[in-house]
C-alpha cells in the first residue's frame, strides 16, 4: 500500500506546475464559457450571416462575399437611418448630460433642506423607473393631437393648432429624442451626484480664498474633477442610445416616411418584415464596428485613468 502511494506521489508532483497554472483558468472557466456562449458565438454568427445570400429562411445559403454590404451601403434608407441615428444619439447624449448635470448640481446644493432634496431626488429619478414601453405609451398619449401637451400650448396661448407631434415629419424625430432624453437623464444625474459628493470641499474653499467666483469654480474645479465620470457616462450612453428600439418602434415605428428611422428600426424591418436576415446582419455588423471603436476609446480612457 505504502509502495503504491509512494509510486503515485511523483506522478502528482509532475502535475504540480500544470495544476498551479491551471487553477486560475479553472476559476475563470464558468465566466469564459458564458462569454463565449452569449457573446462570442452570436457575434461570429452575425458576422458569418452577413456574407451569405440569406440565412434562416434559406436552407442552403450561398456565400456572396461583400454583396450584402454593397446593397446596404447603397440603400438610401440606410443612409437616412444613419443620419437620424447620429442626430438622435448626439442630441440625446448632450441632453442627458445637460439635464443630468443641472439636476445633480441642484440636488447637491446646500440651500435646500435634506428633506426637500430627498423629495426632489425621488421625483427626478422617477423617469428611470419606467420601462421603455411604458414611457412610449405615456408620451404617445401626451403627444396625441388631443393630448395634454397641445392642451397646455392652447391654454397658454402658444399654439391653437392640434399638432401631430409623432405624425409630422417636422416634429417626429425631435419628439422621440425628447422622450429619450426624459427617460435617460436620471442615470446621469445619479452618477454625477455621486461624483459631486466626492469632490473635496477644501478645493472650493481654497478657490474662494483666491477670489474665484462660482462660474470659475464650476469650470476649474467641478468639471475637471468630474471628467473621468463624464467620459464614462458619455461613452456608455452613446452605445446604449444607438440601440434604442422600443421607444421609437412603439411611438412611430420609424415613420412617418422614415423621419425617425434609426439603425435599430432599420435592422428590425430588414429581419422581421422583409425576412432579409443577411442584410439585417450587415447593418448589425456596421453598428458593431462603430460601437467597437467607441469601446476601444472607452477602454483606453479607463486604462489611462488607472
Amino acid at each position: 500500500m505504502r509502495d503504491a502511494v509512494a509510486q503515485r506521489q511523483p506522478r502528482f508532483a509532475r502535475l504540480g506546475p500544470v495544476l498551479k497554472h491551471g487553477t486560475p483558468y479553472a476559476y475563470l472557466s464558468p465566466t469564459l464559457l458564458l462569454i463565449i456562449l452569449l457573446l462570442v458565438v452570436p457575434i461570429f454568427l452575425v458576422i458569418k450571416y452577413s456574407f451569405y445570400d440569406n440565412v434562416i429562411i434559406n436552407k442552403n445559403p450561398v456565400w456572396v462575399g461583400l454583396e450584402n454590404f454593397r446593397i446596404i451601403l447603397r440603400d438610401s434608407r440606410f443612409h437616412t437611418a444613419v443620419r437620424n441615428t447620429l442626430i438622435f444619439v448626439s442630441v440625446s447624449v448632450v441632453g442627458h448630460l445637460v439635464l443630468g448635470l443641472s439636476f445633480a448640481l441642484l440636488l447637491n446644493n446646500r440651500v435646500f433642506s435634506a428633506r426637500t432634496t430627498g423629495i426632489f431626488r425621488v421625483v427626478y429619478v422617477l423617469p428611470w423607473m419606467f420601462t421603455g414601453a411604458v414611457i412610449a405609451i405615456l408620451w404617445q398619449m401626451m403627444l396625441n393631437p388631443n393630448g395634454i401637451v397641445n392642451y397646455l400650448l392652447s391654454v397658454t396661448g402658444l399654439s391653437d393648432a392640434k399638432i401631430a407631434w409623432l405624425s409630422s415629419r417636422k416634429y417626429a424625430l425631435g419628439a422621440v429624442t425628447f422622450m429619450n432624453i426624459w427617460a435617460g437623464y436620471p442615470f446621469f444625474m445619479v452618477s454625477i451626484l455621486a461624483g459631486l459628493q466626492g469632490i473635496s470641499e477644501d478645493l472650493y474653499e481654497a478657490a474662494a480664498i483666491d477670489g474665484a467666483n462660482a462660474v470659475q469654480q464650476f469650470f476649474r474645479i467641478t468639471i475637471p474633477q468630474l471628467k473621468p465620470i463624464l467620459i464614462s457616462l458619455l461613452t456608455l450612453d452613446f452605445v446604449w442610445t444607438i440601440f434604442q428600439f422600443d421607444l421609437i418602434w412603439i411611438t412611430t415605428g420609424g415613420g412617418p416616411l422614415y423621419a425617425t428611422e434609426t439603425l435599430s428600426t432599420y435592422i428590425y424591418k430588414q429581419a422581421f418584415s422583409r425576412f432579409q436576415y443577411s442584410q439585417a446582419s450587415v447593418a448589425a455588423v456596421l453598428v458593431l464596428i462603430a460601437c467597437t471603436v467607441i469601446a476601444i476609446f472607452y477602454a483606453r480612457q479607463q486604462v489611462a485613468r488607472d
Binding site: 396625441n144 393631437p145 405624425s167 412617418p256
Partner: peptide, 12 residues
C-alpha cells in the same frame, strides 16, 4: 381625417 394618422395604430 383625424390628425395623427401617420403614427396611429389600430388600438389608438
Amino acid at each position: 381625417v383625424a390628425p395623427g394618422a401617420y403614427s396611429m395604430t389600430e388600438a389608438t
